[in-house]
Design a protein around this nucleic acid. Sequence first.
DNA 1: TCCTATGATGTAAACGTTAACACAGATGAT
DNA 2: ATCATCTGTGTTAACGTTTACATCATAGGA
Lengths: 332, 332
Amino acid sequence: MVTIKTIAKLANVSNTTVSRALNNSPRITPETKTKILKIANELGYEPNLNARSLVTNKSYTVGLFFSNITSGTSRSFLTEAINAFYKYLSHSYTLSINAINDLPNFESINHRFDGICIISQSTDDDAFINYVTSQRIPVVVLNRRVSMTNVPNVYFDEYLAARQIAEYGVKLGHKRFGLIQGICNFASSVNRQRGYIETLKRYDINLGKSLIFPGDYTMQSGYRAMKQILLMQEPPTFVFASNDDMAMGAYKACAELNVHIPDDISIVGFDDSDFSEYLTPALTTVQKPITDMGKIGIQWLSQLMSKEALPEIVCAVPPELMIRNSVKKINY
Amino acid sequence: MVTIKTIAKLANVSNTTVSRALNNSPRITPETKTKILKIANELGYEPNLNARSLVTNKSYTVGLFFSNITSGTSRSFLTEAINAFYKYLSHSYTLSINAINDLPNFESINHRFDGICIISQSTDDDAFINYVTSQRIPVVVLNRRVSMTNVPNVYFDEYLAARQIAEYGVKLGHKRFGLIQGICNFASSVNRQRGYIETLKRYDINLGKSLIFPGDYTMQSGYRAMKQILLMQEPPTFVFASNDDMAMGAYKACAELNVHIPDDISIVGFDDSDFSEYLTPALTTVQKPITDMGKIGIQWLSQLMSKEALPEIVCAVPPELMIRNSVKKINY
DNA sequence: TCCTATGATGTAAACGTTAACACAGATGAT
DNA sequence: ATCATCTGTGTTAACGTTTACATCATAGGA
């Protein structure tokens, strides 16, 4: 194994000088430096990160924490977040993927991460968020608005997005609205629901319990819910499925019962998943800019890790309604 | 920071004894052990992995390497692989996600991983695979069949899968076949293509160049290719899209041109993505058991990391044709 | 009683790196 | 010419663990 000492011996200098050459310190002459670098190169020297970590007390690893990995988190969400992170994170860091749910105990994160990004889906994660901040590990929380005021937080305004959906439906003349819910204890789900219902109420439309159908963000649950909806005596003309996956399930239910979208019923989804444009009809949905969130998140985290102060600590990324062909205008 | 020394002082024993208590060595009395463990617990002691790594020369990290992360790898593929790995990997290991493409140099993996799993998509990865084996890092290669004979390899028989697709089409009486290709330098793509074409040839069906359409595994490329196909004077009755994403694109093209699946044209995909069942009509496709591969892979890797020998070194996971409703039987 | 074997614990070195401090020679100001 | 400053390099300790080896007490056999 070639170490700093090997190089030092060959170059006839001390360990420190080698270390300086490798970490391009200013306290070294260019000649010595190139000489050492040359030897290091020839020997294929690669620093032992563990040794370095031990003394610098850095792990050169950043942790990406999801609430859950093996279930509950949609695939597109997971990949898009990982993609964004991988893309924008400096390659000198190792990216480690974790699930809060699977942590044997919070302490197990100690010494492991220079920075942590939490993609949080529910308030269940609050204990973990608090632990991380208590350990003074640089952290940013993505996705949902958190209640702690001192935690860097870039979130997506689900409420506003849902409001846009409701308003869009109202504008197009719909009177009877339906909702397929997401997973109950996910913040995304409750905020989408609140935004939708409260906005409709403003337009004097009451979304009764009979028009709210349970779902769990899976295609199958969307399919089931839509089947129920279509069996109603007077089904809604506008259905908001809390995510695109469920909207896709709803599409299938419609197809099976020979109900035409958007002529017979209008559907809107949420997320703007890659497939939503390719459904027939193309799904009207709202874009959740996960990549943007990831980009800002990793930028903030990098700043925190290099002990820079953040100009702002909370940031909302705006929703964008993607109007396609799954909603029709109602004429009276 | 609470270290072994802190505990040692409080327990009135030496560092070594504490270390022994923590690593449940037999050379310690149960009483001392419980006493030390109690103190450690109260202090919320967590070992410094870097220090441990330095002396044991283990990183407690396994690396999951994709050929590419930010492009070229389909989302479902990426997530399913990560999911499987995360699920089956012992939690004492950190899971780190990497892309071979983005590696500054091969040496940068040194000291970082106790084991490496490569999800390889093309022979471009061979240099990396060779490097890893040359470093004697435990490694398994997943997904494609590799040429090196000494590398643990669990792969999916794309050729066989494509053969099943072709035979299925022939059996249902189709005579005119078409193909939408995947990414050219991906092993999956060339094997699917070979399996399809060579099988058809056995049934005296020649797949001319005019019936092969380029694609890149994206929905859009499937859409484009299908548009071209449907514009032909005498389009094929059976089209194999090299993955489900492209099949979905093809669906859209058909819808736009008012071509009915499967009445006017039959389509089969590949991967059995989660959405394929929810398309209308449900997509006939072939299941690629990524989760199974991951499970075997992680099992092998675990054995290798604990220096156990592998009973077998290469394993093919079988394809399963998922017959749904996108192919019709041709009657003459 | 003495010796040996055994079992529990301690001592100290080692892992590979960084960094505080020391040192010597050169440079520049007076 | 003298002294202070600077610059390049070396010395050494430190990071928190594990582990080979040493030590010491105790038990058991003769």
